[in-house]
Structure formats: structure tokens, C-alpha cells
Design a protein around this nucleic acid. Structure first.
Lengths: 172, 172
DNA sequence: TATTGTTATACTCTATAACTATA
DNA sequence: TATAGTTATAGAGTATAACAATA
């Protein structure tokens, strides 16, 4: 049911084709291992990320959300008083992308734009009651999908991964 | 110089704005940590992947390549006799995407399409001498970029990461 | 009947520039 | 003059369907 995104769309291949492939039929993973990509950490990073993104998007679909709108909703819900500019900075997205995402969430009744108290240029993005309810349900779905994906890892591997990825994602 | 791709485009913000932000000015990373995204491994995975992709694309630009064309070139060079369908399966990309990538590489003189010996429907993608030369130089650049990105990690952390990512990327 | 390469199309995500209203 | 939000547009990347030639 999961659709792989990005560099990751799987093309299921008939096993008949494999069977008749002839003499030089190493497995796809063997070919990959022997190529220049075989020890390329970036390749695995991209693939793991795409799988994770696809799983999250799939889990969020039933709530009418995608990863990016979910992110905006999650941040807006966490702390009232955040302007669109703040959201753009934190996520990080371009301000013009935040406009579209907030539009979408607002049309669904999940957030409101309110005038910022100190700055008449700025909007504060505020979650509605409906928005908070949807977010809570969506969080459960995302967590389930994440756990399923990480089921192949031991608890210590998970912790290690989180720590190392944090270093890579936010080099300080 | 690096341009961050995807969910990852950084919007540099004037420190003046931060200084005058007023009472509730937690840092962006603090806001992120407190939000529903703060413990979301998928978020860090996406961000690390985007940084890695951007670094690789940046490193490949001077060779006239991008990550996807580099991947096709690397696989074609590794093993003569691979059809476009094979490449699509291994990478994995949609066959129609491989068409465009091979077109591009062929126009640059890095690969040739040759008729497959056993199957007149299929093309075999073969690297030219120029293609192999470019690939070798590109590989050096990619490796440099990767090392720079992973400089924050200890050797054992790198090994661990590679092992864990392999499990996530290719769940068997 | 199924598969290979191909073309075409559409949709998502990302990047950039420009405009307006405020500061 | 700089910033917040907005609009518009263009380019990657991705997904899908259809077609001709061949198996």
C-alpha cells in the first residue's frame, strides 16, 4: 500500500523476467553493492528518508494532512504567538511556502490567522480546537508508522540513530 | 555556498530581529524540540538527507552532473550489459525517468546506447572513455563532500550509521 | 499476451523575484 | 531602509498512462 516517493519508486519486476535473464544475472542489490554507489552513505540516507517520508505521508493522508502541513500545524499548536516568519525559520521553509500551507490549513479550519499584537504586518498562526484534535490523532498515526518502519532496529540502534542524525541535521 | 534543498532551505534571519523579538524568544531549535516534531526521527532523517543531497549535487555540479545522472553513470560504468530496465530496477527509478537521464548523459558523450545482443527491444547503456574519466573525478568530489558532512561524526558513529541506514533503506 | 523503450502529461516540491503594507 | 506577508513563475523530481516494436 505504501507508495515510495522520490528516488524511491519501486518497479516490481516479474520473477519470470529474472529467471530468464541469462548468465550475468546478479541480484539488483549485488549490482548496487559493487557499484560506486555501494558505499555511498548519501544514497542510503536518501533512500531511508524517502521511505520514511512516504510512510508518514501515507499515515497522514487519512487526516487530510501531508508532512509539510502537519509540521506547520504541529508548530502552530505548540506555541501560540508564532508568526508565519517564525514558522518559516524553524521548519525551515521559504515564507512563500508557508503562505500556501497556512492557506490550506485555514481552509480546512485547522488554524486561524490573527493579527500580531505588536506588529500590524505580521500574522500569528493559531490552531483551532478542531486543529488540535486533528493534530493529536495525526500524531498517533505518525508514531505508528515510524515504529513500524523502525521495527527492524533494536532500541539501542534507534537511540544511536537519532543522536547521529541530529548531529548531521543540525551541525553546530 | 551550499544551497539547501527540499524541506531544507535555510532562511537566514537578521540577528537584529532576534534581539528585538521580545519576551517569548526561545531559539528556533528550542521551539522545534518542544513541538511534536522534536522527537520525530523522520524529520531528522529528511533534513540530514536533504543536506547530503544538496552537498552531493553541489559537488557534482562542476562535473556537469547531478545525483541522479551520477547514479546512472556509476551503474552503467560498473557493469557493461545493463539495459535501461535494469538501471531503473536497481536505482530504483521509473523507466521513463531513465530515458531522460540516459538522453542527457548521451548528449554529453558520457554514455552510448547500444543494441542488446539478445533482445532487439532493449538498449544496453555503455560508458564511453570520457564517461569513465568524468565518473572517476566526480567520485572523488562526492567522497570529499561526504567526508566534510560527516566530519562531526566519530569513525564508530559513521560505521553505525551506515549499518543502521542500510537496514532502514533495504528492509528484507 | 507481456515487456522495452519512449512520449506526454500532471502534480508536488523547491527556488526566486517582485509587490504591498507596514516598521 | 528593512521586514512580513503575498503573488507569480519556473524548475526539479515524481507518478501515470499510452504507444510502437519486439518477445
Amino acid at each position: 500500500m505504501i507508495r515510495y516517493a522520490g528516488v524511491m519508486n519501486m518497479q516490481p519486476r516479474s520473477s519470470a523476467a529474472d529467471a530468464t535473464a541469462g548468465q550475468e544475472s546478479r541480484s539488483p542489490s549485488a549490482r548496487l553493492r559493487d557499484s560506486a554507489l555501494g558505499d555511498d552513505l548519501g544514497f542510503f540516507l536518501a533512500r531511508a528518508s524517502a521511505l520514511s517520508l512516504a510512510a508518514a505521508n501515507s499515515a497522514l493522508a487519512k487526516h487530510g494532512l501531508r508532512v509539510r502541513s502537519y509540521s506547520v500545524l504541529a508548530l502552530a499548536a505548540n506555541d501560540a504567538g508564532q508568526s508565519q516568519r517564525d514558522l518559516a525559520e524553524i521548519l525551515p521553509l521559504h515564507p512563500s511556502q508557508v503562505v500556501a500551507l497556512v492557506d490550506e490549513l485555514q481552509e480546512g479550519g485547522l488554524v486561524r490567522r490573527e493579527p500580531a499584537p505588536n506588529d500590524r504586518r505580521a500574522n500569528v498562526v493559531v490552531t483551532t480546537g478542531e486543529g488540535r484534535a486533528v493534530l493529536e490523532r495525526a500524531q498517533v498515526s505518525v508514531r505508528e508508522a515510524t515504529n513500524e518502519l523502525q521495527a527492524v532496529l533494536s532500541p539501542s540502534q534507534r537511540e544511536n540513530l537519532a543522536e547521529v542524525l541530529r548531529l548531521l541535521a543540525f551541525p553546530s
